[in-house]
Amino acid sequence: MWIFIELVITFILMPFVIKWEDWGWHACIIYVGCCMMFTPIVGVLVYKFAFR
Rank of each mutant, 00 (worst) to 15 (best):
F38N: 10
I12C: 11
M37W: 12
A27C: 02
I30V: 15
F49H: 14
C35W: 03
I41N: 00
L13Q: 13
H26E: 15
M37H: 05
K48L: 13
C34E: 07
W20I: 13
P40S: 01
L13W: 08
C35S: 05
I41F: 11
K19A: 13
M37D: 03
A27Q: 01
T39F: 11
Y31Q: 01
W25C: 00
F38A: 12
V17R: 06
P15S: 06
H26L: 15
V17N: 05
G33Q: 07
E21F: 09
I41R: 08
V32F: 07
Y31H: 05
H26V: 13
Y31M: 02
V42D: 06
V46Q: 00
I30T: 13
W25A: 14
W23L: 11
D22R: 07
P15R: 01
F38W: 14
T39W: 12
C28T: 12
V44A: 09
Y31L: 10
P15I: 02
I41S: 08
M36D: 02
P15E: 02
A50Y: 05
M14I: 09
P15K: 10
F49D: 05
C28V: 12
C28A: 15
W23I: 13
A27Y: 04
I29Q: 06
G43E: 02
I12K: 06
F16Y: 14
P40G: 00
T39N: 13
G43M: 09
D22Q: 07
G33C: 02
L13F: 07
A50T: 14
Y31G: 06
V44D: 10
F38L: 14
C35N: 09
G33R: 08
P40M: 03
G24K: 09
V46H: 04
C34N: 03
G43C: 04
P40Q: 01
I41Y: 11
V44C: 12
W23H: 02
K19N: 14
K48R: 13
F16T: 06
W23Y: 14
I41Q: 10
L13N: 12
K19H: 11
H26W: 10
F16Q: 10
E21Q: 13
V42P: 11
M14K: 08
C35K: 08
P15V: 08
I29M: 10
G43K: 02
P40H: 07
P40A: 03
F16K: 10
I30S: 01
I29R: 03
V46A: 07
I30L: 13
F49K: 14
A27F: 09
W23D: 09
W20L: 13
P40W: 06
C35M: 03
L13C: 15
V32R: 08
I41H: 06
W20E: 15
F49P: 06
A27I: 00
D22V: 08
A27T: 09
V17S: 04
L45T: 06
G43W: 08
E21G: 05
A27P: 03
M36I: 12
G24D: 11
V44F: 06
